[in-house]
Design a binder for these strands. Structure first.
Lengths: 176, 176
DNA sequence: TTTTTATAAGTGAGCGATCACTTACTTTTG
DNA sequence: CAAAAGTAAGTGATCGCTCACTTATAAAAA
């Protein structure tokens, strides 16, 4: 029972890579630096993918649909990444990685939402409330998919149909 | 940087409890057994609290509202529990704890949903899709609250108003 | 051209600390 | 006094990390 973030060690990593532990310490000053560096890289890569084709000036439904498409595609393209970020999220590294990951990102998202509110497409909402409705369901689906089962332990395989079925309900909830 | 589930050790636990490590091993056969036992206890306690006043025969909105109320109250009453379950969720212990936690629970939830579908209150949905819309937003809010910030790193404090505001949007999305 | 020196890249062996866990023994309880 | 409950003092294994050292490449000196 040593598979997750528990059970990750510098010695094991070096052995798995076929290099000496000492070599790792040439490139990273310590274990924390290693994890934070690699994780930050991955988070930035994902942020970039999520913003692909995203236009803050587009309609609310269209913009959100592209976000969903990008996130869904990226997470299913790299399934391990989801689990990795999950573990990061509930680790003490979380704050060091996600704190500034949103400089450009959160700006564009804010503009996008403000536009949608201005146009009367959605109501004004606190950021946390908005995110919890707009994205939490998608990440929940992806999580079930990666774990292979829902909360009840029932087997679960995510399909495109399910994603867009969920999307439609989310849109229905958010739109005025 | 040793605070989370990483950094938890039997030796530290014993010291914190003011007892000998050996004493722990009288009651638990190994570390895994200790974690799984305690976690299962907590999950059962929470499941019980969540089913309080819940009637599978009630209307969909009323039933879901009670579920939200119970979950919200329990998670804010024991904030550490949320973080603990979070860490469990993304650990290798997950499968051992949550696999059977839903014998009575998932039955009652299934009946509840079937009733709602029969009455035409909601459409028939895959369980994973249903859960992702009905509960993922709430857990997302609670998570932000416990972490004290949203995805953007912006400070976040959950209020009753936010919870029921989110609930209303979820209901709007789910109801026919 | 050959030799020397400089530097970056990488390594094996092993440090002290801590890990999960055990043993040999003492105290408490009924 | 016998059983149950508890403990101090460890066990070998593994942790993150370092040090003294080798190898590879190339510029500088002879």
């Amino acid at each position: 029972m040593k598979d997750g973030f528990e059970g990750f060690s510098v010695n094991k990593l070096a052995k798995a890579c076929g290099i000496s532990v000492a070599t790792l310490y040439i490139y990273y000053k310590d274990k924390d630096d290693l994890i934070i560096s690699i994780a930050t890289e991955e988070v930035n890569r994902m942020t970039e993918a999520v913003l692909k084709d995203f236009d803050p000036e587009s309609s609310f439904e269209e913009g959100l649909r592209i976000q969903w498409k990008n996130r869904y595609r990226y997470m299913t393209k790299y399934p391990e990444l989801g689990l990795f970020l999950e573990k990061l999220r509930s680790s003490t590294y979380q704050q060091y990685i996600f704190e500034n990951y949103m400089d450009e990102f959160s700006n564009r998202m804010r503009v996008f939402c403000q536009n949608a509110v201005k146009r009367g497409e959605i109501s004004e909402l606190p950021v946390g409330v908005y995110w919890s409705i707009a994205f939490a369901p998608l990440y929940s689906l992806i999580r079930f998919h990666n774990e292979g089962s829902t909360v009840g332990g029932k087997p679960f395989k995510l399909t495109d149909k399910m994603v867009w079925q969920t999307f439609d309900l989310v849109i229905k909830g958010l739109k005025r």
